[in-house]
Design a protein around this nucleic acid. Structure first.
Lengths: 194, 194
DNA sequence: TGCCAGTGTGTCAGTGACTGCCAAGATGGC
DNA sequence: GCCATCTTGGCAGTCACTGACACACTGGCA
């Protein structure tokens, strides 16, 4: 199954180049003040090609999120059965944090998302989908029955809230704090708060 | 301070007419397959006027949410001091449920939002803002210190998750079930799940 | 009654994201 | 070298949305 890869390589290269140009312009000019044709020109491709690689302007920032959601779900599902729902989710989040290509790029993109309302919307929407996709696995881990559906929703929502809180703190600290510790701290608060 | 109200009345009327036309077209054709100029024509105004009343196409569906968020916040803040954070939030949500103009319209719009991804995004985003606005009040009710900020975030997130779950169930039941009971059920699950 | 300021509306042109279509060039298998 | 396949660029068009301008209407004041 060895692929010819001349096309594949150039595709990969073009994609990379477009992405870099986009991030460069976004960080210097801001997301809203950067047009897609500008990015295309900077990357040396036509606007049409840009939209073939990234279906949406938002995808230039949030596009990789889809793959991350998939990674999260499979990680949670592949935890051994004796692992609790809480622990399974924690494991999934940790894999995400370490799987992120470069912490530096992650920090840059996170700042961009936090600073741009329209990006926040698409980011939150993608995360909502993650939560939906996690429902079956978490429900099964809680005991299975459809009565556990509500409980599963809550467990997932709380876990994500902890990710949010710790991520926000992490970004605010410019990436100096330890995300894992922050998450555990948030979970501790959540499970004792009542 | 009696207002002249000839303008006000015609403004109110135009707004109402645009809104009704929009809902009519959205429910019959779907949100994405309805253009703003179509709505304007149906309402008998120019497209420009439509955008003066509703800054965004999404606002035609989610526009009133802003006022609701304000109502939620003031309700929570005005609860007596001895009321717990959980109870204060519950009180706020109840006011929202009953304050909704018409349950019928609410049900229609909710279905529209649930069925349209782009609407979900703006809906969720607005609700995120509500959560932020609620932070100070809830934190104070939990004891005040900045250490309570994380806890406040969690309490709010869990409460909203319960609203989500109960609303989803309510919409799925076509509005026949009692939202208040559903919410209490969700909260019970949330506070015992751990 | 006539004038004037404030406000609402329509028209028009324009921007920016995004899509369908088609022609041209590059690539790889034969 | 030939042909199917893939990729790209250009172009026209749609749709959401905005700024600018002119016109009309309302209410207050002289």
């Amino acid at each position: 199954m060895k692929q010819a890869t001349v096309w594949d390589r150039s595709r990969q290269l073009a994609r990379q180049e477009i992405l870099e140009a986009a991030v460069r312009l976004f960080t210097t000019q801001g997301y809203d003040r950067t047009t897609t044709s500008e990015i295309a020109a900077e990357a040396g491709v036509s606007q049409r090609t840009l939209f073939r690689y990234f279906g949406t302007k938002e995808d230039l920032v949030c596009g990789d999120q889809d793959a991350l959601g998939e990674l999260l779900r499979t990680t949670v599902e592949s935890q051994p059965p004796e692992v609790s729902a809480w622990a399974a989710l924690r494991a999934g989040f940790l894999v995400l944090a370490t799987a992120n290509h470069s912490l530096d790029l992650t920090l840059t993109l996170s700042k961009l998302i936090f600073a741009t309302p329209s990006l926040q919307a698409s980011y939150v929407q993608k995360r909502l989908r993650w939560q939906q996709d996690l429902l079956p696995a978490v429900r099964d881990r809680l005991g299975g029955g459809s009565e556990r559906e509500l409980e599963a929703r809550i467990v997932i929502a709380v876990s994500f809230a902890c990710v949010d809180a710790s991520t926000a703190t992490w970004v605010a600290s410019d990436g100096t704090e330890d995300i894992e510790a922050l998450y555990d701290q948030a979970i501790t608060v959540a499970r004792s708060a009542k």
